[in-house]
Structures are given as structure tokens and as C-alpha cells.
Simulated assay, not measured.
Amino acid sequence: MIVRIMGEGQVDVADGDLTALNKLDGELEAAIESGDEEKFRGALHALLEQVRTVGKVLPAEEIAPSDLILPPADATMDEVRAMLGDEGLIPD
């Protein structure tokens, strides 16, 4: 699955890693719902770091259609809230 982190580029994430990413996505959603900025910031950074850790960075010249688009690390809670779908940032 090709994941784009806005402002950073694309990474290829194996389907087997989606369960862990979905858990982190759920934590991010919960932080947004509670309006807790500190938890939101931590959850967003944890999600992005996990994608960077498990994903294989695609070369900048290799542009592939993105299956998922994630916000940048400095996104605001309102910006991320606007990106959320019915299943969060990462669908089950």
C-alpha cells in the first residue's frame, strides 16, 4: 500500500503492518474527539513515525498513486479532523 505523508513523500507499507497503523489511527481519532491537544500531537507523531519505520521510502522520481494520504507532522487538530473519513485516516 502506498502512503503519502504530506510534505515528505511516499512510502510503501506492507498490508501486514496495517493492523498496528489502525490502532494508532484509533488513538489519534480519540484524541481529536476529546479535544486533547497534547494527546493529539503525540498520537499524530506516533502514527507518522510508525509509517516511516515500517514503510519503504519510494524515490522522489518514482511517483505512484497513493492509497492513503496522511497529514504532515505539524498539522493542526482541525486540519486532521477535516481529513478524517468514517474509518479514520486509515480504513480497516
Score class of each variant (00 low, 15 high):
E8P: 04
I90E: 03
G35T: 07
V3D: 03
A14D: 11
I63L: 13
A64E: 10
L68T: 04
K23P: 02
D17H: 15
H45L: 10
R41L: 05
V11W: 13
V11P: 04
D86Y: 04
G35N: 06
K56N: 15
M6P: 00
P91D: 03
G35K: 12
E62W: 05
L58T: 00
V3S: 03
A82N: 13
E37Y: 14
G35A: 11
A60S: 14
M77W: 09
V51F: 07
P65F: 04
V3Q: 05
D15S: 14
R41M: 02
V11F: 15
G85E: 03
E27S: 15
V13G: 04
Q50Y: 12
E27Y: 13
F40V: 00
L28M: 05
E79I: 06
D92V: 09
K39E: 12
K56V: 13
G55L: 07
M1W: 13
K56P: 03
R41S: 10
D92H: 12
S66A: 15
E79W: 09
E38V: 12
K23H: 14
G85M: 00
A46S: 15
A43N: 02
P71G: 02
P59E: 05
E49V: 09
V51T: 04
Q50N: 10
E87D: 14
E37A: 11
E29K: 11
A75W: 08
A64G: 10
D92P: 15
K39P: 09
D67T: 10
M83I: 04
A43P: 00
I32E: 08
D67G: 11
E37G: 10
Q50P: 08
G88E: 09
G26V: 07
P65W: 06
A43V: 05
L68I: 15
A31S: 12
P91H: 04
L68D: 01
R52I: 05
M1R: 10
E37T: 13
A31N: 10
E38P: 02
M1N: 12
